[in-house]
Design a binder for these strands. Sequence first.
RNA 1: GGUGAGAUAGUCAAGUGGCCAACGACGGCGGACUGUAAAUCCGCUCCCUACGGGUUCAGAGGUUCGACUCCUCUUCUCACCA
Length: 399
Amino acid sequence: MIQEALREIQRGTAEIIDIERIEKLLKAYFDEGKTYTVKAGFDPTAPDLHLGHTVLLQKLAIFQKYGARVQFLIGSFTAMIGDPTGKNATRKVLTKEDIVKNIKSYTTQAFKILDTEKTDIVYNNEWLDELGAAGMLQLASNLTVARMLERDDFSKRYASQTPIAVSEFMYPLLQGYDSVHLASDIEIGGTDQKFNLLMGRQLQKAYEIKKQQAVLMMPILEGLDGVQKMSKSLGNYIGVTDTANDMFGKVLSISDELMWRFYELLSTQTLDEIAQLKSGVNDGSLHPKKVKEALALEITARFHSENEADTAKEEFDKVHAKSQIPTDIAEFECDGEVWIAKALLDCNIEPSTSQARRDIKQGGVKIDQEKVTDEKLVLTAGEYLLQVGKRKFAKLKVN
RNA sequence: GGUGAGAUAGUCAAGUGGCCAACGACGGCGGACUGUAAAUCCGCUCCCUACGGGUUCAGAGGUUCGACUCCUCUUCUCACCA
């Protein structure tokens, strides 16, 4: 029983520090029904979650299955500093209003995966506000500058002459202090959080709370490009609130290599099943596209419904496999005669008339399925279906 | 506080008086090929109803027929010293 739980917990992890402790906690749960706490911090800087976040959430859900109470920590205080992790520039600081606004949409999305009953939402400003300057100084005395600069992202930024604000140095300390206050048994986060997560262990020791959290790190999910981490600012993300169509299409657009990564980190298929799929693709008995479709269906169904996922697939096949026109197309209207380049701009499918001209020149623009060759074309009254490239569509009615 | 180096398009990075809307790389976009994949190949990549015009090289002034390139001040970054 414990072994099985451990296996599930270890799945897809990048690194676990102090696995013995996790084992003990599980044992206490199975033997005596004792619960324990797992902390995970979330930064309410953006209102939307994407699949990268759900990797963590799914792991938390596994823990809940095996007796954990999740401490869903909202970095309401630390958000005002801005976590430097993975950023190459100082993050802009949010106002309290922004944060409150983000939190609500954030938690509703998270509870699509987490068990509400076994989750405590906590805000770190509750205890960090109290800390005060003296508390801060005491906290800061636990860390040397040299050690701080060992951190990968700090040293990189330093080397590339990107500014680092002193306030950013406080971030790992405060995050670590959260673990002291909450007396967490386990904390999970991405590998990029290693420094911060370990700080929790170190501070728990320094503050003598008689326990040191185990640390579990998940790999960082790559974005659609397969290279950089999934993030909103890079625009390579699949959002939890994306429409079923978008979600399905986005999953299908990832590379075959990346697909296995997504399987490992996002699918609920067992590792054995995944291995089977993999060998099937390798010996040619399974088409990789079929496997990718199955993944896209699974993920889409998780955030919408199976019906919607199926519809998304049909829609997708219609548009791309048979190159027909999608069902839902944004519609626009305008008066009088319009120059084609301007029309494309007004319909938001081209960023400028210059770009529109270029695309026309290169044969990338179609009206009612017909390639446009004349870049001076003027649209007179009537209805048109405009298309740029393969995926940008718009309907325009000229009055 | 002192001294020195630096700031160029989405990013990195050339350019040190006219040949610069600015080499190159990456990214992005369009096309071919496909499985809306990846890889590869071709083209494009500031804006403007365009064989022309307008606005760009941190910001503000100045020198010059002419400045991304020279001078002055300002802002920001980095290094060394204190």
